[in-house]
Write a protein that binds this DNA or RNA. Structure first.
Length: 269
DNA sequence: AACGGAACCTGAAAGC
DNA sequence: TGCTTTCAGGTTCCGT
């Protein structure tokens, strides 16, 4: 269940599992998830190609293959890449598999909001090209972000989740960054001072580093799967005390999405 | 151009 | 217990 940190982990995993290897076989199990090429061409596009590079921008992963082709992967809400052995049967909700020697990598996605996009000649896809700066790979420029925020009527939280403004921040990371910055999620983006935008940039960097740290390990599982405990400060913590103030954390709906914040240390002002 | 809301899917958890 | 409702961290499309 992926925002930037989870996609970064998925990208590192794929690099470890497939980097430099030649794909012996590829199979698409659910044609719905593929874009950019006919489902029937999936195997042909990937088989016998060497994995030349795996990169990430925002929530997108790009797999570059020898011969110039590329495969883009977006995990949607429930997508996941897992490593199995070639002899292992299909996983529940498996949508695609890539085999390379002794490893078999499976794309699993119950809700199928995720996408694989084939680029037969490695041509950039709009979803990748239109992304804003990535906090991890590009870094965020507070002055530039401030200028963008000045030009919209949207709330600050909605803008932070706009992938064309910042690539990779989703509902959790936005809520967490705003809490760290002590900014109310519903504040009009244009009302923020440069100092407040600087605090938000620090908040984004800090929450991403924190989340990444949680998931850093040899056998990675996503944070907050059923049963796991919630490591966040405000996300999913309605009614529980704010770690700063002991005031109960509030929940509100913004643009159809749940937002969590502390009414005391994130005053609307 | 910009915004709210529904749609795309399925499973888990909460509610009754 | 079992049926129903609600909710889920993503994006996209459609009507206003």
């Amino acid at each position: 269940m992926p925002e930037l940190p989870e996609v970064e982990i998925a990208s590192r995993n794929l690099r470890r599992w497939l980097g430099g290897k030649t794909i012996s076989a590829a199979k698409l199990e659910s044609s719905r998830i593929l874009r950019g090429a006919p489902p029937a061409s999936f195997s042909r596009l990937l088989a016998k190609r060497r994995v030349a590079a795996i990169t990430r921008r925002g929530k997108w992963i790009r797999v570059d293959l020898s011969g110039g082709a590329a495969l883009f992967s977006h995990l949607g809400m429930t997508g996941k890449w897992v490593k199995r052995a070639p002899g292992d049967g299909p996983q529940r909700f498996e949508r695609a598999r890539l085999d390379a020697g002794r490893v078999s990598v499976r794309y699993v996605d119950p809700r199928m909001f995720g996408r694989l996009v084939a680029a037969p000649r490695g041509e950039p896809i709009p979803e990748w090209t239109l992304l804003g700066p990535d906090p991890l790979t590009d870094g965020l420029d507070a002055a530039a972000l401030h200028a963008v925020l000045q030009r919209t009527k949207r709330s600050v939280k909605e803008v932070l989740m706009d992938q064309a403004v910042i690539a990779g921040v989703g509902n959790i990371q936005a809520a967490e960054a705003l809490h760290r910055a002590r900014i109310h999620p519903a504040r009009p983006a244009a009302s923020l001072t440069l100092a407040e935008v600087r605090a938000i940039v620090r908040g984004i960097d800090a929450t991403i580093a924190f989340t990444l740290g949680l998931e850093d390990g040899p056998e990675i599982t996503y944070v907050e799967e059923p049963g796991a405990d919630n490591p966040f400060r405000v996300y999913g913590k309605a009614g529980e005390p704010c770690p700063r103030e002991k005031t109960p954390i509030a929940r509100m709906v913004q643009g159809g999405r749940s937002t969590f914040f502390c009414p005391r240390c994130q005053p609307f002002r």
